[in-house]
Design a protein around this nucleic acid. Structure first.
Lengths: 360, 360
DNA sequence: TTGTACGCGTTATCAT
DNA sequence: ATGATAACGCGTACAA
C-alpha cells in the first residue's frame, strides 16, 4: 500500500490552514465557506502535492466504500462478458466508483452466508450478471444489499434488471431479409426454452405477420444452439426444392453451421441464400465468408445501464425524500429492455428474380 | 453499505470477553494465548452472529487493503482477457484478496499522475495485462507500486512478468503434423513484428529442423492476422502442384481463412490437407468443420501465475529478511514462460500415401 | 471564517 | 490469560 502517502494534514500545513478547511474545500461543503483566496491556495497546493484522499479512511468514516461488486457466475466465461464488464467499469469510473470482481458458481450463491457478510461489508451494491438471458429468483444473499440484475429479469420485480430486446432484434433481422425482397424465410432456432428462444421466435413471427407472409412451421427447425446444430437444422430446411431464400439463425454459431450446410448443398451466399445471425460474435461474423450480417447484443449498454440504475438505488434522488422510507423495498421495478441493433455485413442480398433458372 | 453490521464489539459482549481477546483469537495471534474454553466460545459466538471483520477498518489499521488492481488496456477487449481475469480472480480469492478493475488506454497511462495516486492508495499491487504478447517499458505510474506484467515482458526485467511459450506451442503444433507423417508443411503467418510472430516461426523451424526437414521459404507466407489474410496466404501456399500436405496457421482466425481456401480449392480437411491453428479460440476451433486442432494459450494460468508472483512481491518471504531492503528494487526478474498445450480435434490426419492418385 | 476534537471498526501495544 | 487504549486518516459537529 501507500509508501509515503501525502495526507490531508500535509496539505493543511503546506497551505497554512486547518485540515477542516482543506476537507471542506476539497469536498465542496456548502455550509462552511472559505475566502476565494484560501480556496484557490488550498486547491493548488493539494494538486501540487498530488494529494488524493485516502479512500479507505474516507470509506470508514463515511460508512460507504464507493465500491461496486460485479458478481458473476464464472466471470467472463463467455466472450460477451467482457463488454458488460467494460460498460459497467466505464460508467463506474465516471462516477468515481470502483468495480470489484466477485466470482461465484450459482449453487454457491445460496449457501454462501459468509459471502453475504463479505459483500455487505465492503461494497455499496452489486451488479449480478448471469451468463445468458434468463429469469431468476434473487439469491437470498443478495436480498440485503442493493442489487441490479444484468441479462436476466427477476421473477418478482424486486430489483431493477436489464435484458436485451430479443424480439426486437429478431424482428430487425427478419425485416432486413424482407426488405431485400425475401418472402420465404427459414428460421434455424435452438431447442432450449429460454427467453431468447421465445423472444426471437416472436420477433420472427411478428416480422412475417407485418409483411403479410404466412407463417410456415416447416420453415423453422430447432437444434442445439452450437455450430453442429446449426448445420443439421440448416440442412433440413435447405435440402428441398421449396427451400427458403433467406435464413434467420438463432445465433452466429448456428449461422456458421448454416454456412457449412449451404456450401455442401452448393448454395452460394448471398446469391442463392441470404443469412442473418444473432449475437454479433465478431470472431465469427467477420471471419465467415462472406461476412455475416447479424444482430448485436447490447452488452456494453447493459453494463452501463445497470451501473447507472444501481447508483440511483444507492443514492436515492433528493427529490421527494419524504415518502422515501415508506416506498423503499416495496417498490416494483420493470425490467429494462435494451435494443439490439442490426449489424450489416455481406450475407444478405436480394433473392434471384422469380423464374431465373438455377444454374447449380 | 452495511445496514446493521455485527461488529467485533458485539461478539465480545456476547461472549463475555474483551474485544482484544476476540481479535486475538479470530486472527490467530501467536503471542497472546487464551484458554481453549474461551477460544471455542468466542469462535462459536462469532460464527453464530455471522461476524466478519470490517475489511475497511482492518485495512485502515493494517495499512494494507488486500486489494489487487487489475489494470488493463481496454479490459476484456479480446475474448482471451476473460480467462486471464478468471485465473487472477480465483487465485486472489484463494488468498483472501479482492480484485478491482482498472481500465486504461495505453497513452492515458503515462499522463495519469492522479491515477497513480489513486492506485497507490487503495491497492496493494497491480496486475498489468496487455492485450497481446509484447515487450514494454513499465509505465511511469507503476514504478512506485508492486507490479506484475501479464502477456508482456518488461524490457529491463525490473518487474516479474509472464508470457506464453510461443515457440514451444508452435513446435508442438508442427510436431503434431510431423508425427502424422507430414513432411511438407506450410506456415501461414502474420506480418506484424511481435514476439508471437517470431516465436511461432522459431518453433516451426525448430520442429522442422529436428525432424530433418529442409526449411523451404516458399512454404511460409505472411499476411494480416485476420481471417481474410489467412485465406489469401493459404491460397498462395496451396494453389500449386507441390502444395504442402500440412499447414500450420499463426492463429485460429487465419486457420479459418485457410479452411475457406481449402474448400475453394477442392481440398478436403483432413484427408487432403491437415491444419493446425493457434490460440484455441473455441468459438472458431469447435465451430469449424472438421473441428480444428490448435494450440491453447495459457491465459488462465498466466493470470494465476501473475497473482501468485504479486503476492510474493508484496509479502516477501520471511526467509532471509535481513538482506531484504538492499536487494529490493535492484532485483532482476526473468520473465516466466508458460507452456502452450496442443488441443487435438479433427483437422489432422496422415497424408495420403505417396503415389495415391489425387481424385480431385 | 477557521480550528479542535471525536468517531468510524480494527489491530497492536502494553499493562495487569 | 485477558483487558484498556492508542492509532490508522479522514469528515464533521461544535466551539472559537
Amino acid at each position: 500500500m501507500a509508501r509515503k502517502a501525502v495526507g490531508i494534514k500535509d496539505v493543511a500545513r503546506e497551505a497554512g490552514v486547518s485540515v477542516t478547511t482543506v476537507s471542506h474545500i476539497l469536498n465542496d461543503v456548502e455550509s462552511a465557506r472559505a475566502s476565494d483566496e484560501t480556496r484557490e491556495r488550498v486547491k493548488s497546493t493539494a494538486k501540487r502535492l498530488g494529494y488524493g484522499a485516502n479512500r479507505i479512511a474516507r470509506s470508514l468514516r463515511r460508512q460507504q466504500s464507493d465500491m461496486i461488486g460485479l458478481l458473476s457466475e464464472e466471470i467472463a466465461t463467455t466472450p460477451h462478458a467482457g463488454r458488460i464488464i467494460l460498460g459497467a467499469q466505464e460508467a463506474a469510473q465516471k462516477r468515481g466508483l470502483t468495480l470489484v470482481l466477485i466470482n461465484t458458481s450459482r449453487d454457491q450463491l445460496d449457501t454462501q452466508r459468509d459471502s453475504d457478510a463479505l459483500l455487505r461489508q465492503q461494497v455499496d451494491g452489486v451488479l449480478y450478471a448471469t451468463m445468458y438471458h434468463r429469469t431468476i429468483n434473487l439469491p437470498e444473499s443478495l436480498k440485503s444489499v442493493p442489487t441490479v440484475l444484468i441479462d436476466s429479469a427477476s421473477q418478482d420485480g424486486t430489483v431493477p434488471s436489464v435484458v436485451p430486446d430479443e424480439e426486437g432484434g429478431a424482428f430487425a433481422a427478419v425485416q432486413e431479409l424482407i426488405d431485400h425482397g425475401h418472402r420465404r424465410i427459414g428460421f434455424v432456432t435452438n431447442v432450449d426454452d429460454v427467453p431468447a428462444t421465445r423472444g426471437r421466435l416472436a420477433g420472427y413471427r411478428r416480422a412475417l405477420g407485418e409483411a403479410g407472409i404466412q407463417f410456415d412451421a416447416q420453415l423453422v427447425v430447432a437444434e442445439q444452439s452450437e455450430t453442429p446444430g446449426g448445420y443439421k437444422a440448416a440442412v433440413e430446411v435447405l435440402d428441398r426444392s421449396d427451400r427458403p431464400t433467406g435464413l434467420f439463425c438463432y445465433n452466429d454459431r448456428m449461422a456458421m453451421g448454416a454456412y457449412h450446410a449451404a456450401s455442401e448443398l452448393g448454395l452460394r451466399i448471398p446469391v442463392d441464400l441470404s443469412i442473418v445471425g444473432f449475437d454479433n460474435q465478431e470472431l465469427i461474423a467477420e471471419g465467415l465468408y462472406p461476412a455475416l450480417t447479424t444482430v448485436a447484443l447490447p452488452h456494453y449498454e447493459m453494463g452501463e445501464w445497470a451501473l447507472s440504475a444501481l447508483t440511483e438505488l444507492i443514492l436515492p434522488d433528493t427529490t421527494n425524500v419524504t415518502s422515501l422510507d415508506s416506498t423503499r423495498g416495496a417498490r416494483i421495478y420493470e425490467t429494462a429492455v435494451l435494443p439490439c441493433p442490426i449489424v450489416r455485413r455481406n450475407s444478405v442480398s436480394s433473392p434471384r428474380p422469380l423464374g431465373e433458372p438455377n444454374r447449380d
